[in-house]
Nucleic acid binder design. Structure first.
Lengths: 347, 347
DNA sequence: CTGAAAGCGCTTACAG
DNA sequence: CTGAAAGCGCTTACAG
């Protein structure tokens, strides 16, 4: 048995008595506030350590008497994945309200730097913390930096702006995600030789280019028999992707695999199915939706790379809650994994 | 933009004033405590709903003025996986202390029904909540039921006792885990025919039998060219597993895959490596450790099925914290996924 | 069946 | 530089 923690709950008052000061002074030391002599600070710190004092979180929260406002800045045109993040955030509202934390969701055109920048400038300062699905663009970076400068806690969500001063990124490593997709395609294709097609939303999006970088690297190093084709761009649109895929199937007799880097997976699935090529082409894409779930079940898709939207929503909320309260966050705990989903481990 | 939640924070006092009663009465209605006339209850409930009142969680916690004791009952002989769960629990201690929640860890022989039962009986009632790695045995079930009867909140961890009255199971669906392992082996083997060996810890453990059931089913339905061998039992021990594997390799010329259902993966890896068969045999096992991580990196293992120990520790703590406070838990949020880890998505 | 009051353990002005 | 006191919004006896 590990050392039984004893039930002696030490309070501020105990520390004050032991250290021979008032509770106000202990509080000052506890939070590193100024106006306490060095000797006193030391004496109090020693007493805190000796008694193993931990302030009661609920008491502090109540006494502080303030509330917090959080905002999620999300894409206007919601795909299923983004919608799920939203739902998860909204589902936490009651819980958050009980903790005096209010959360709004603002939709904007996150792919238009001007629109996104304006939104951030407009709504930003009305909040204590912001989670934003951010395009990596100099103006967006500047807007984020301004908010941080103004004391707003900012985390990026799903899509990062690494060069900005955001406190945290909630999302996956997209290069690794691309590598993972590539490795699965390579392994599933087996001994066959041939081409692997890439369908992207837009190569202007950093998560899409990152995934392409990932699959390119793993193909080059581990699967020399497979030839990666240049990405075609379908803007994450089902109809466009269907047309593109139909053409790819027609024009590429030795096509053995397809990797959909972005959304619009349903369109590709339809084209594959229509062409009767579901069985001989390895098809891997992103994000678990009603469509990809069905495709996995019927064997049309071989694997889905997923970043758990619920987990991302919660991580963003947890991190923002800690940040606005100046509490520490443990990054290790907030790592978002790259989930591989096949028919057998469908949640 | 979703409806901006307004900052008007309604308190008990507001509700009391509006409903024309005292705050004590509102509190009674809020918690469904007896001693309030039906009419009054209705009036108060209506007011609560109308004002959208949500009690301040921190205030309630402080006023309640009580602390909670939790206990994790874990296997005495710690494998890496169990050790990681423990570490994650211990790492939360400071955070939990600030929330007046104390957590102890008790180690026992969870594979011996008598020892486990005795431990549960001995330590159980000293706690408000217990997480237990439980052998599925009638005596263990009875001990759990007794604790629940006595008002202790019990969750099972990693290994479930489904027929008991435990409030929640924190762990994966092991049949699905076995199916997943089988599907990966089948896909990775490709067009080759041959045998797949199964190494288990003990077929007396329900998680091990469940996984075997899973792989058996998927092999029968999806991979008719592969023949599943009868499980050999190595008690999760490296040395034993190494010997068993060496023998399997010698005696089975057409061996194409190995599935290690339990721990002791290092022993199997050594045997494979010694025999120079790392490349032509697909090897899948469970749980991410220093060993399996290395095996993935050097290509000795093809995939690891993992149940995130950190996630399980946190889920157990979160669920227990909610249960002892009589707060609702959302099971959907607590689902532990079956993680597929290959070299490319190693965390 | 209902209410007035004390108190949980902090933080926040305010006074000195 | 330090302390006394009010107050955050609940819950808990206690009184009636």
């Amino acid at each position: 048995m590990t050392d039984t923690t004893d039930l002696t709950l030490v309070t501020l008052k105990d520390v004050a008595r032991e250290a021979g000061v008032s509770i106000a002074t202990v509080d000052r030391v506890l939070h590193g506030r100024p106006g306490v002599r060095k000797v006193t600070v030391q004496r109090v710190e020693e007493t805190i350590a000796r008694l193993g004092f931990r302030p009661h979180a609920a008491a502090a929260e109540l006494a502080r008497g303030r509330s917090y406002r959080l905002c999620f800045v999300m894409p206007k045109s919601l795909n299923v994945f983004m919608a799920e993040i939203q739902e998860n955030v909204l589902r936490e509202r009651a819980w958050l309200t009980a903790r005096r934390t209010l959360v709004d969701i603002v939709e904007t055109d996150v792919f238009d730097p001007s629109a996104l920048t304006e939104t951030l400038e407009d709504v930003g300062r009305r909040y204590d913390g912001i989670a934003v699905v951010a395009l990596d663009h100099p103006r967006v970076r500047a807007a984020i930096d301004d908010l941080v400068e103004a004391g707003v806690q900012v985390v990026t969500l799903v899509s990062d702006v690494p060069s900005s001063s955001r406190a945290h990124y909630v999302g996956i490593d997209n290069i690794a995600a691309g590598r993972t997709a590539g490795a699965l395609i390579g392994r599933f294709v087996g001994d066959r030789k041939g081409k692997v097609a890439i369908v992207a939303g837009s190569m202007a999006l950093s998560d899409h280019t990152d995934r392409f970088v990932g699959i390119s690297r793993v193909m080059a190093s581990d699967f020399p028999d497979l030839e990666l084709m240049m990405p075609v761009e379908g803007r994450d649109d089902d109809a466009t992707n269907q047309t593109l895929t139909a053409r790819l199937l027609e024009e590429t007799p030795d096509l053995v695999g397809i990797y959909n880097i972005g959304a619009g997976t349903a369109g590709i699935g339809t084209a594959l199915s229509d062409a009767g090529r579901a069985d001989d082409i390895v098809f891997v894409g992103h994000d678990l939706t009603v469509h990809t779930r069905r495709f996995l079940l019927i064997g049309l898709m071989d694997a889905v790379i997923s970043q758990h939207p619920g987990r991302e929503a919660h991580s963003a909320l947890r991190v923002l809650q800690a940040l606005v309260r100046k509490e520490p966050i443990s990054p290790a705990r907030e790592v978002i994994g790259i989930d591989i989903v096949i028919r057998e481990n469908l949640p």
